[in-house]
Amino acid sequence: MKLKTFINKSRMKPWDFFILFSLILASFAPLVLFSIQQASQPTVSYTAVLKVDGKELKSFPLSTNQKRYTYKYTDPDGDYNLIEIDHQQIRIKAASCLDQICVQRGWIRKPGETIVCLPHKLVIEIKASDGSETGSVIY
């Protein structure tokens, strides 16, 4: 069907096209506004904090460009925890404790998540730079 035939049959006036075009254009306004708002928000960085017996020993930055590496914590008694960091996640890969609950916990990546090794009094907690307890993580 040709445009002129459509206009004549539906009795659309020239201003009707202008209004229709304006409404279609206005429907994209929320997309533009939300993308501008999202770009203006500060980026949040995540850090995994290693505490032993309540004292902070080390912190590990968690970022998307972080390469995989391991850190070995050894206490004065010779007990150890092998901590693995990979991009935005951390886990205890191996430990000398008997129950191995900390190893079974697996990867953590969200603010507020923790890994606890009770025999070694070790805690790993993920914290956000803005202090939020929950957040979205980009994989």
Rank of each mutant, 00 (worst) to 15 (best):
D86E: 14
L23A: 04
P42V: 04
Q41A: 15
I85W: 04
S63A: 12
R109Y: 14
I115C: 11
N81M: 06
K55A: 09
S40Q: 15
I85N: 03
W107D: 08
V123I: 14
K58L: 11
V32T: 06
K93Y: 06
S22T: 14
F34T: 07
A48E: 06
A39C: 01
Y73F: 13
N81Y: 09
Q100R: 15
E56G: 01
F34Y: 09
T43P: 01
E113Q: 08
Q66K: 14
A29E: 08
Y73C: 03
L23H: 06
T64S: 10
P30F: 03
I24D: 02
K67V: 10
S59C: 02
P76A: 14
S45F: 05
I36W: 14
H120W: 00
L118N: 10
H87T: 13
Q66H: 11
P30E: 02
D53G: 06
P61Y: 04
L57Y: 07
P42D: 00
Q41R: 15
L23I: 06
K67P: 05
V116Y: 01
P119N: 12
A26H: 10
E113S: 04
K55H: 09
T74V: 15
T43W: 03
I115W: 08
V44H: 03
T64M: 03
E84S: 04
Y46K: 01
A128Q: 00
E125V: 13
A29I: 15
D130E: 00
R105V: 00
F18L: 07
L33K: 09
F28V: 11
D75W: 08
A39L: 05
S136E: 15
V32H: 05
T70Q: 15
D16R: 01
V44A: 07
P30S: 05
G131H: 13
A26P: 08
K55S: 10
P119W: 04
D79C: 04
L57I: 11
Y73K: 00
Y80K: 03
R109F: 09
T134G: 14
L23C: 12
Q37K: 12
K67H: 13
Q104S: 15
I24M: 11
K51W: 05
S27F: 14
V103Q: 02
Q104G: 13
A94Y: 05
R109G: 04
P119H: 07
I92K: 03
H87Y: 10
V49Y: 06
Q38K: 13
P119F: 08
I85Q: 02
I126T: 07
D99I: 14
D16A: 10
S40C: 13
C97F: 07
R105E: 02
Q100I: 14
V44R: 06
E56N: 05
P111R: 06
L33N: 10
D79I: 05
S27A: 14
K110E: 08
K72P: 00
I83P: 01
S129K: 05
E84V: 07
S132M: 03
G135C: 12
C97T: 02
H120M: 10
P61G: 11
Y73T: 01
K110V: 04
S27D: 08
K121T: 05
L118P: 09
D75G: 02
S132K: 12
K67F: 09
P30A: 05
L31M: 11
S63V: 05
D77C: 00
I92M: 12
I85M: 01
K51Q: 08
L31T: 12
Q100G: 08
K110L: 07
S96C: 00
